[in-house]
Design a protein around this nucleic acid. Sequence first.
DNA 1: TTGTAGGCGTTATCAC
DNA 2: GTGATAACGCCTACAA
Lengths: 341, 341
Amino acid sequence: MRKRKGAGRPTIADVADKAGVSTITVSRALRDPSKVSDHLRRKINNAVRKLNYVPHSHASALASTRSNIVGVIVPSLTNNVFADTLRAIYDDLEQGPFQVQLGNSRYVAADEERLIRTFLGQGPSAMIVAGNDQTDTARELLQNAGCPVVQVMDIGDDPIDMMVGFSHFEGGRAAGRHLVQKGYKRIGFLGARMDPRSHRRLEGFKDALQSGGRYDPDLIMTTTISSSVSLGAELIGQLMARRSDLDAVFCNNDDMALGALFGCQKAGISVPDQMGIIGFNDLEMMAASHPSLTSIRTDRYAIGKRAVEMIKAELDGETPEQKIVDLGFELQQRESTSRAK
Amino acid sequence: MRKRKGAGRPTIADVADKAGVSTITVSRALRDPSKVSDHLRRKINNAVRKLNYVPHSHASALASTRSNIVGVIVPSLTNNVFADTLRAIYDDLEQGPFQVQLGNSRYVAADEERLIRTFLGQGPSAMIVAGNDQTDTARELLQNAGCPVVQVMDIGDDPIDMMVGFSHFEGGRAAGRHLVQKGYKRIGFLGARMDPRSHRRLEGFKDALQSGGRYDPDLIMTTTISSSVSLGAELIGQLMARRSDLDAVFCNNDDMALGALFGCQKAGISVPDQMGIIGFNDLEMMAASHPSLTSIRTDRYAIGKRAVEMIKAELDGETPEQKIVDLGFELQQRESTSRAK
DNA sequence: TTGTAGGCGTTATCAC
DNA sequence: GTGATAACGCCTACAA
């Protein structure tokens, strides 16, 4: 008889011995206390405390083909927008028995697919993915995952399972409408990276400008380069050089908007009188800048929070009131678009 | 005889059958191909491909008491500083067989300790933790973890195992020295959150000012509130109100510095002539602002990259040249401190 | 409500 | 270099 000896830490059998019950009773007492009598439960809890017993997640996962892992996939680790949602997910998930596993897809669909495979291979309790632009394969994988799946940050008609976010099309439209209403005439668009959500913002923006009779495709400037403050400054410089009559821009995110502000300041263009600027997401800095910057406020933290709520509800067997939750957005008007008409 | 049937996906036994070998040979071929003859290895690899076999990480972890998980603990998910390091860790680790597991300690030592326990409970391949201010218990846990441990973002004399970072004291000192050299007379400090690393920056800063005969404790302003651009603007406003003779500030990070710039602009104080501003970390925006902002550049991406290299080396049994790696910093002088003396 | 038996998929141990 | 066998720690299925 060869002994192998594990990590040496107490097992469920040790607890069972100490409490004078069988292992399965301990298992039940830990996972669903209501299935065990008060009497035994107390004894078991005592034994757990005394032995400092911590369940072995791998053994549990192996036996049940379900882990306590919640897989989360975001396209960027450095984009503040996802950071807020992630923070909410962590805040709410680390309370329970769950363990977050985070993947970075780098805005590459194939990477996302690979990550989904990796995570599903671990039998996750749930999955959270950003956006609703997964590949067909990815959708299929998630549909067959046998666990709650929430797509966050965006909404659409055809959820894999559940969705929490807001309409980027409508957000872009609100931005466009605002600039038109403010009386700006030659309204441009500055777009970096241009992931699917940015594209939808641009579509909404175009729609608003067309309705307002202000649409000029020559003022739309996009690039696949990652967004940054520097890039915002550079792009608005280029656009102003090409079209000196430009008098407002919608930037596809706040970094770009802040950069556009700096670009104007360098060029001696006054904001908002000579140039209106509006961003997207309303990061904290937008209210602090000088002049302060108008933006479309989105509640990323609430999105993460809601996603976790929906997951927990589904795991508890509750039937959700809604599979698709639109948390909306709110235009925050500030100095950068507050010129006298 | 009751069959339980797992997730239904191919197991190592299926591969063994198809290749006409035993399971252990498959296991060896996958983990250390050199231990298996070319002939069998080829057959096994074929079988793996045909069956689309993916190892079951939980089973492996259970049997070997080692998982492929690398635990990473950071104090904040929204602080860009950690985002860059995280990105590097993900970029380099997702190449190998590893799986990153990220924890958020929220700058709370007890939370960090809890996370360490959780991660160690999974028998991680390695651990990466931010800073070198762990509690004694946490240090002990990590010391006995039986896996490589890297402390990142800071350096010190007494590593748990390995360290990659830079000296915050020296960084703060360089900032202080710079302001003194530039001829600023009443030099203040704006510090938010004030985690241990910020404290060390402040100590270095004090040291430089004392050496230069410019130290005035009344100009040191700190708070436990999280740093933000708004807070930077607010604090510099308060400090200027109290001490109208203030003519320069070192901010404990770049968000605060940007906020300080906005605060000055709102108050009609010209930067750098009436007020010098220097930040810390040199985020991308610092070069783009108007005026551009001086900062202490740190290479967070390199820190993450190096940490992963050290881990891989230690796992490969290599003896590291250094246990403590100082990646240094670099003062980036820009317009915000470039006044004529 | 509680217990018994055996399997989850892999790897360590020992033998050839 | 390769294989048989017994762990690893927990949970599902079934029975009482």
